[in-house]
Amino acid sequence: MSVAQFEAVESSAVSPQEAAGGLGRDALRRLRRSPTAIVGAVLVTLFVLVAVFAPLLAPYEPNFQRLDLIRPGVYPGPSSEFLLGLDQLGRDELSRIIYGARYSLLIGVVSLTLGAAVGIALGLLAGAFGGWVDSLVMRIVDVMLAIPSLLLAIGVAALLGRSITSVMIAIAVVNVPIFARLLRGSMLAQRRSDYALAARSLGVPRSRIVLQHVLPNSLSPVIVQGTLALATAIIEAAGLAYLGLGSADPSIPEWGRMLADTQNSLATAPLLALWPGLAIVLSVMGFYLLGEALREALDPKLRR
């Protein structure tokens, strides 16, 4: 059979709707079909918009006080003037929630960027070189992994003082080993793949194999983890603030701290605990759902 005949018969096997494009587009198409992704994306978008445009959205400044309206133990609930009521210091709850999004996003993004950058660098080092470099890097990472995040945060706070910076550093440090291990494992698997071997057999230099083939194909789980880590960072930031390890400045509207502050007034104004709690849950859920959907969309096993 001639080549021309092959061409004629086999070319029809690629159906037109499949021939749309590369992997990214493929994943995007699947994301668009997933209800999980849509809900997650809506929540995340909302969260980011609120954080970015907080000054425009919030009806009041976060520290605008109406001390005249509160008495100890009695805080006005939702009204047309203050949609979510006033907090223990007579500040507008809604405005503080809205400004709080900024801090959550800030802490999440900065700590994630920091943690992921260091983690990816370590993982890349281990994954690219293997051998003793890998062993050394991974032992360091194991040590980091063995320190509980809470203990670490207390340590950092003791060292640098209670501040948002301490919280961000603590969360970043917790993220480092996660990213390092993830990228390293993914790269080692990809390094053993047939296409990496094929590139070696072509004589492609090792640095190029690692940077052009292995690394890009190892990033999917890292991207997914990044999304999930944002969610974790928000929870951790709230948790640390709740435990009093966050910023010492009471004027900063941090969701975790707002939650902690309601402890004494839980009986009289339970709604004040609900709002920051809800804000944490919704933002965290948004990132989780998006992360899960991303994981599914990027999974090569589900690709067809």
Binding site: L23, D194, Y195, L197, A198, A199, S201
Partner: peptide
């Protein structure tokens, strides 16, 4: 040169 068993695994999925 070499030809591999699993044609999908031996091609980088990100390469046209």
């Amino acid at each position: 040169q070499m030809v591999f068993q699993d044609p999908l695994a031996s091609l980088d999925p990100r390469q046209s």
